[in-house]
């Protein structure tokens, strides 16, 4: 794998991991790239359910960004940490161009779909499907289990605010403490949950960090709720 310039490195259960500017997580020693909450097909699902007719380009955009990370790091394994599709019909409704793009990404590497709450059940693509994925001391699952350690999860789409001199800035972020990592959402049409929300405050240890996404990921003390 290539050198990682603008990553944020940290240890979890003896594993050396790197949070990337894109919101993906890299485990160089295992040649593994992890992304969470792609929510592919979100606009199709909304339209199908009678909602807004959003620009139908988010799947292409999300896969494009994933392709950039894959090209840069050429991982042997890609793990999609759940909610990879906005729902199962959305997975089946993926359009030709997007299916090809996904196929190109999956070719010649190990691909693991961890199930999320949005996409439980069989997917029409190759790769392994698992409820959770243990690798050495680290467990990859979609929704964090309080009380566990050595866990990488997604689901919450965490974001955090920082006050700079001029104005407040709110960005998607990794939440990291010595027992777990909560990954940001990689999907294009996805919002976020404030780190200082009750759920995330309860989940993370008091000394947790929020690593804000940006050209260079920035660690700050995780903003906490009351």
């Amino acid at each position: 794998m290539e050198h990682v310039r603008n990553g944020y490195g940290f240890d979890l259960a003896g594993a050396r991991l790197v949070a990337l500017p894109s919101g993906a997580l890299l485990w160089p020693e295992q040649s593994m790239l992890v992304v969470s909450d792609l929510h592919l097909g979100k606009s199709e699902r909304m339209a199908r359910r009678g909602g807004a007719l959003l620009p139908p380009y988010e799947t292409r955009e999300t896969l494009d960004r994933l392709a950039q990370d894959v090209a840069r790091h050429d991982p042997g394994t890609v793990v999609c940490l759940g909610d990879s599709f906005d729902d199962l019909p959305a997975a089946h409704a993926l359009q030709g161009e997007d299916v090809l793009a996904l196929g190109r990404l999956m070719a010649n590497r190990r691909w693991v779909w961890v199930e999320g709450n949005h996409d439980p059940g069989p997917l029409p693509f190759g790769g392994l499907q698992m409820a959770e994925l243990p690798v050495r001391q680290v467990t990859f699952r979609h929704i964090a289990k309080p009380g566990t350690s050595g866990e990488v999860s997604g689901h919450y789409h965490p974001k955090a605010s920082i006050r700079t001199r001029g104005a407040g800035v709110s960005r998607a972020c990794f939440l990291i403490d010595r027992t777990r990592v909560v990954m940001p959402s990689f999907g294009t049409y996805t919002g976020g949950l404030h780190a200082h929300s009750d759920e995330l405050t309860a989940l993370m240890r008091p000394d947790a960090l929020a690593v804000l996404l940006g050209p260079v990921p920035q660690p700050i003390p995780m903003p906490r709720g009351a």
Partner: peptide
Amino acid sequence: AGLDPSGVPEKPYADAG
């Protein structure tokens, strides 16, 4: 915050080898 949490290196991780 006086934070020096375990695993945070001095500088951003620069060499993933």
